[in-house]
Design a protein around this nucleic acid. Sequence first.
DNA 1: ATGTGTTCCTGTCCGC
DNA 2: TGCGGACAGGAACACA
Length: 274
Amino acid sequence: MRRGLAPVIEGRVLLRTEARRPDLRRPLPEGFAARLTGVRITHVGRRSKYLLVGLDSGETLLIHLGMSGRMLISGAMPGGFHHPHRAAERHDHVVFEVEGGARVTFNDARRFGMMDLWPTATLEAHPALAALGPEPLGNAFHAGHLRARFAGRRTPVKAALLDQRVVAGLGNIYVAEALHRAGISPHRAAGRIAPARLDALAEAIRAVLDEAIAAGGASLRDHRRTDGELGYFQHSFRVYDRAGHPCARPGCAGTIRRAVQAGRSSYWCPSCQR
DNA sequence: ATGTGTTCCTGTCCGC
DNA sequence: TGCGGACAGGAACACA
């Protein structure tokens, strides 16, 4: 999403912002639309699952998509193309009009998304960001980090990887796919994984995320790219949403299973994930 | 401290 | 075709 938005909005002025309802999951901050009108977007960044839109007003707009949130670009598109604006649709909650003719619409059927404004100077102290673990694609994330964070923990590794304080930005799909690639059962206690297997896990996490980003994400139901197109990483799933199918690992004769852990579906191959 | 279960909201799919 | 129930990519919160 960041890669789709940056070429369209970075360096441009927000001419007008319309909040079509006062709240998403939580209330929008005081004066939301006014604070996002007549300000220039200096930078489009990301931390974990939060989009960070830096403004020359000294504030940063934080955006989380929740489960069903989309950021859709219309009007002036990257490369000088023009895509007609669409009529307002159900669940279009926030509309950004950008200098140069682009419009960005935040649509979120389930309204689990969030937006907030926070001073850029103290951004890392924002409650949603302060406790986050390292970026999985950054240098601070490696097997040694997992070893330290998993030490002594008896919680299933699936739950530990979904904990954003351990490593930032992994969701249910990418945890399932990474554990399968690393040959680790989602039920295994986090503190009982041999160091060599943590090497494989850290590498599997990076590989899954790299491939998923290149594919534009996974569009199972709700996810759309900023141009409205589907991502296609779902075609690369080896276990997620594949209960009853044969394991994709070469030479493995297992059958993918599904079980609920901590309220979320887990998918794994009992034969090659231990 | 560390773990699990519930909740927010709407849409879709499946079985009857 | 209609209806009820299960389920959905997240994360805050209550509680054991």
